[in-house]
């Protein structure tokens, strides 16, 4: 559905997108995650035909965005991260205007607008002026607006940014409903957990490069090469720490009252050796378990690691 090959975008000397490759399958909900300044907005603007790339190409349905954008406009729905609204319009007039910009015949507009306002839960606001809406409502209205021409692929740049927790939840509910519409959706965020539960695929971008991609589980597995082990002991955590410190394969030791955790960049065999060394040294181990990768941890690791490089 969407394919990016060797995409480069520079602002002066600064490279915002650096040879990015990415692929989004038809019907998937793709979470595009990265910290602030990673290049998400830049990439998405290029996808939507709003910015030209310096190198590389974006293909949607096999068509190059920079060459066939006119043919692709019907297929792409785009919601920018920052946007404004026209103040002197009512909600339904606002939607009607954008229906017009896609040359949707007048007689079809009412049904389309009704359905979309229903979807984003703004039906009872249709006669309100747009500027009287709350931020969360405006954001949902813009989402509805980006769906006005029934696009096949939806590019949403941080649709939940700047919302309070309640509005975030409401937005999430709407986004979940989008899954039923059978569209390909690319949605960006700088918060991974926010996307994890609703996406089928995730791509992690940092400094303009895609550093990992796949299903949520796959990404977790990639990360868990660096394993975190929790060891519970009956007593004497200092003793356990002392032994662990002698082992070269063990990193990042943390001591609590009744347990110790450590990182290990090794195979199962290595882990079992670590365990037997602890036991043979007389440490009363109660449990020795690998921690389920916490997505936020993973993400911090994935993106934070390169910060020092």
């Amino acid at each position: 559905m969407l394919k990016i090959e060797g995409l480069v975008k520079r602002y002066g000397k600064f490279t915002a997108v650096d040879h990015l490759d990415m692929e989004v399958n038809k019907g998937s909900i793709y979470g595009f995650v990265g910290p602030n300044g990673a290049g998400k907005t830049t990439t998405m603007k290029i996808m939507a035909g709003l910015l030209s790339a310096d190198e590389g190409s974006v293909y949607i349905d096999g068509m190059n965005v920079s060459e066939d954008i006119d043919a692709l406009k019907d297929k792409i729905g785009y919601m920018p991260d920052f946007f404004g609204v026209y103040n002197d319009l009512r909600v339904d007039e606002y939607m009607d205007f954008y229906a017009g910009t896609y040359y949707i015949p007048y007689e079809q507009r009412k049904d389309i607008i009704d359905n979309l306002l229903e979807l984003v839960d703004l039906k009872d606001k249709r006669n309100f002026y747009v500027d009287s809406l709350s931020r969360g409502m405006k954001q949902r209205l813009c989402l509805a607006r980006s769906l006005i021409h029934d696009p096949e692929i939806l590019i949403l740049d941080e649709p939940a940014s700047g919302l309070d927790p309640r509005a975030r939840v409401e937005m999430k509910e709407v986004l979940k409903q989008l899954r039923t519409l059978d569209k390909t959706i690319i949605i960006s965020s700088h918060i991974l957990p926010e996307l994890a539960e609703m996406c089928t695929e995730i791509g992690i971008i940092n400094r303009g490069r895609l550093i990992d991609s796949g299903s949520v589980n796959e990404i977790m597995r990639h990360i868990s090469k660096e394993r975190i082990i929790d060891v519970k002991v009956l007593e004497g955590t200092e003793n356990a720490v002392k032994i662990l410190e002698q082992l070269p394969e063990v990193t990042d030791i943390r001591e609590n009252t009744f347990d110790v955790s450590f990182g290990c960049n090794g195979t199962d065999e290595m882990l079992s050796q670590v365990l037997s060394k602890l036991v043979s040294a007389g440490v009363p181990v109660i449990s020795f378990t690998e921690r389920e990768g916490n997505l936020e941890d993973i993400f911090m690791k994935l993106t934070g690691g390169e910060e020092d490089a």
């Binding site: 603007k45 709003l50 019907d74 785009y78 920018p80 946007f83 404004g84 954008y98 910009t101």
Partner: peptide
């Protein structure tokens, strides 16, 4: 300035 131009430019107009 109103940040509505991008929304206009992605349309079929």
């Amino acid at each position: 300035e109103r940040q509505t131009l991008d929304f206009l430019l992605v349309t079929r107009m």
